[in-house]
Design a protein around this nucleic acid. Structure first.
Lengths: 341, 341
DNA sequence: TTGAAAGCGCTAACAT
DNA sequence: ATGTTAGCGCTTTCAA
């Protein structure tokens, strides 16, 4: 084991005060180049490394950001994390991860890291917690940012995509292909995204003067099983439809499975469109039409804002970021696209 | 902002010494139930939360573990992380993530968290760093564990799969289907896994008395592009082969792309087997035969061992874990498997 | 520009 | 079982 070298050891050896060593370490300008060189030399000789806990205690910050996601092995979330992690590291911040596995209790418990000052701030991706909780945290002076949901509080930066807009695009795309009976498999009913995607779906129908059939709408979990079960329920109703808009790619995967079992051909008998552009979507057969969201950028942008807020105490007027998504048309909705992309 | 409440505030209000509050908080048995109740009441009333930095400084530990992975958005790694994170949290540890994106410098830099005592220990998943570095770190008394590589040091727990064994299984499977010219697309030449997988490939050939053609072996990156480029090089050689063993699923994906472009049918004209059982492998067409590794368990097991070591200072005699993998036979190698799974 | 001294908030050793 | 005291290693006034 190494003998622990502390700042005072460096100071003594260099013939200066601990404070001076600290100034050298923290790039304080008030050190002569000569002193700095002398101190640096000793630091290197001794292999001195400042103790993080002492530094944190004294400076009242940890240079650490917490990130809460529902499922780290879903590429949608891991890409967001990648963006956060990369930017954070470039700004000397560390990232602590919490994978809630959709467990609201774990989500809540993790926020204790804020109150114990283990982390300086937190980013919640697609939080389950009710808005009041989140507002309350911010009102207590903690730094918090949200990905995938808009919260109205002047100290909570948010980054969202325009769910209404891209849902309209999806439906319009299907209508453009001649579909009139378009089913919609939405995610869990209490997710904000679900409201907005439904709104987009309805708006587009109205715009195209297509009658709306409530029976063509199903809710489920945002995963493969949710999609599988929902499409089965839709089929069971015996109401005809020729296309299905799935609120994410995982749901679409479930639709694929059901269709494969029932011998229904995509897109010939059923056109399918998803959302998220999961890695998997372009590899399945037929490739899945989907909405691409700039995941990496969303994480990167938000963490940047969050760090700015923590350091400048700026109450960002520009607080809500709405990023653009892009509809990727592939073989699951458009015949002509088969074999390419 | 909350007024900061510290342990002394709680103590005063409860009419006890700070040490007693600390004992209550840390479950020390030397507190009467009555005192404990009194203190707990005040803690709840005041909403007291202990300051982590102070605790860390005093107790010389941070209850934090670092995890280094090459790519967090690869499901192989994120599943391992999931295992680590889950077990860690159940033991009150936090997890700091480092996504190196195959950048060796970032990997090295992250280890500073060990020397600055920001983290109590680190888990390196598929490290790029040379063994000497890793040994050196352990020799300096830091806690380190490795996933996917065996390091010979009595304080470094490792978890590995038997690359030789499952590679032999893969090749034997292909031979069993009648293949004699089996190409091998290996990962990057300096990964340990690559040596072992090559060894398994060769051993199996010898066992089946199949002549070995060095031209049928290619190296590349462990990703889709690496696979795509390697299979192209193989085709360019004009040496016939009817099957290809890809050192991971990503590589196999590249093989699929090349085959699709060249109109080569899988498995009719070329049988393909991968490794990792990435999520994607069962959704592509045809579903990819692959080797499943217990990723979650690997992470979970190792972190458990690591935490035990940190807390009991036990120099684990049982230090190297070899977990079993399983060959999943699907349509990319076996006709009969098409349409099922 | 540099040094001296105080103190961040907690736990552990020792005393009672 | 509880209290007293010292100190973990750093940064930051304040003074020189």
């Amino acid at each position: 084991m190494d003998i622990k070298i502390k700042i005072v050891d460096v100071a003594t050896r260099a013939g200066v005060a601990p404070a001076t060593v600290s100034r050298v370490l923290n790039d304080s300008s008030k050190v002569t180049p000569k002193t700095r060189a002398k101190v640096m030399k000793i630091i290197n000789e001794l292999g001195y490394q400042p103790n993080a806990a002492a530094k944190n205690l004294r400076s009242q910050k940890t240079m650490t950001i917490g990130v809460i996601v529902p499922d780290i092995s879903n590429s949608y979330f891991s890409e967001i994390i990648k963006g956060i992690e990369n930017i954070a590291y470039s700004k000397k911040y560390k990232v602590v991860i919490c994978d809630t596995e959709n467990n609201e209790e774990k989500e809540l418990e993790f926020l204790n890291l804020l109150t114990t000052r283990t982390i300086d701030g937190v980013i919640m991706v697609a939080p389950m917690l009710a808005n009041e909780f989140i507002l309350n945290i911010a009102n207590h002076g903690y730094t918090i940012g949200i990905v995938g949901k808009q919260i109205d509080h002047d100290r909570i930066p948010c980054i969202i995509t325009d769910n209404v807009k891209f849902s309209m695009q999806v439906v319009s795309h299907l209508v453009g292909l001649g579909h009139r009976e378009i089913a919609f498999i939405n995610g869990s009913a209490h997710a904000v995204d679900s409201y907005d995607r439904l709104e987009g779906y309805l708006k587009a129908l109205r715009e195209h003067q297509i009658p709306f059939h409530p029976e063509l709408i199903e809710n489920g979990n945002f995963n493969e099983t949710g999609g599988y079960e929902a499409i089965k329920r839709l089929f069971a109703k015996k109401i005809p439809f020729t296309a299905v808009y799935s609120a994410n790619d995982e749901i679409a995967l479930g639709v694929y499975r059901a269709c494969s079992e029932l011998g229904i051909q995509i897109p010939k008998q059923l056109a399918v469109v998803g959302v998220d552009n999961n890695r998997i979507s372009k590899y399945i057969t037929p490739p899945l039409s989907t909405v691409n969201q700039p995941k990496y950028t969303m994480g990167a942008l938000l963490v940047e804002k969050l760090i700015d807020m923590m350091n400048e105490n700026e109450y960002a007027e520009n607080r809500v970021f709405k990023v653009d998504s892009e509809l990727l048309i592939r073989g699951s909705s458009d015949y002509n696209k088969n074999g390419q992309e």
